[in-house]
Measured scan of single mutants.
Amino acid sequence: ATNIVGKVKWYNSTKNAGFIEQDNGGKDVFVHKSAVDAAGLHSLEEGQDVIFDLEEKQGKAYAVNLRIK
């Protein structure tokens, strides 16, 4: 899926990971530091509006192509 709108639920820069809550009510999506880095960002803030694509690896959904809304 592409161009999904959501809000950062939480992001821990020590653990280099967090979750994004989908505005469409879907399951929360894992976001890794690699996606944050690829977006040219240093970190994510709780409640921040984002747009992202979903990629599945080994049955788990990940946020990729992250951008700030």
Rank of each mutant, 00 (worst) to 15 (best):
E56Y: 15
G47M: 04
W10Y: 08
D49P: 14
V8C: 03
N16R: 15
L44H: 01
G40Y: 05
F30R: 06
R67L: 04
V36E: 00
K9I: 06
K9C: 05
V50C: 04
G59T: 04
D28Y: 11
S13C: 14
K69Y: 12
L66E: 00
A17V: 14
K69E: 09
V64W: 07
D53C: 04
I51T: 08
V5P: 13
D53F: 03
N24A: 10
S34K: 10
A38F: 07
V50M: 06
N3V: 04
Q48E: 08
R67C: 04
L54T: 05
F19Q: 07
H42L: 13
L66F: 01
G40D: 05
G59V: 01
E55K: 11
G47Q: 04
G59M: 05
L41A: 06
E55W: 15
V5S: 14
K9V: 05
V50H: 00
A17L: 14
V64D: 02
I51G: 02
K27T: 09
A38L: 09
K7H: 09
G40P: 02
V29G: 01
Q22T: 12
A17T: 10
I20L: 10
S34C: 11
V5T: 15
K27A: 12
L54S: 03
E55T: 09
Q48H: 05
F30V: 05
V64N: 04
Y62P: 02
V29Y: 06
N65I: 02
S34Q: 09
K57V: 11
G59D: 07
K33M: 06
Q58T: 08
N16I: 04
G47H: 05
V50Y: 04
K15H: 10
A61P: 08
G26A: 10
I4M: 11
I20Q: 01
E46H: 14
W10I: 05
N12G: 03
K60E: 07
G59W: 04
S43N: 12
N65P: 00
F19G: 03
W10E: 03
R67I: 06
F30I: 06
L54K: 07
T14S: 13
L54N: 01
A63C: 03
A63H: 01
E45H: 15
F30Q: 05
W10R: 05
K69P: 12
S43G: 13
H42T: 13
R67Y: 04
A35H: 05
A61C: 13
A39T: 05
D37M: 14
G6C: 02
G47F: 04
Y11L: 10
E56N: 10
D37Y: 14
D53H: 03
D53A: 03
L66S: 00
H32V: 06
D28E: 08
K57L: 09
A1I: 12
K15F: 13
G26T: 07
L44T: 01
N65E: 02
G6F: 02
H42D: 12
V5R: 15
A35D: 05
E46M: 14
G25P: 06
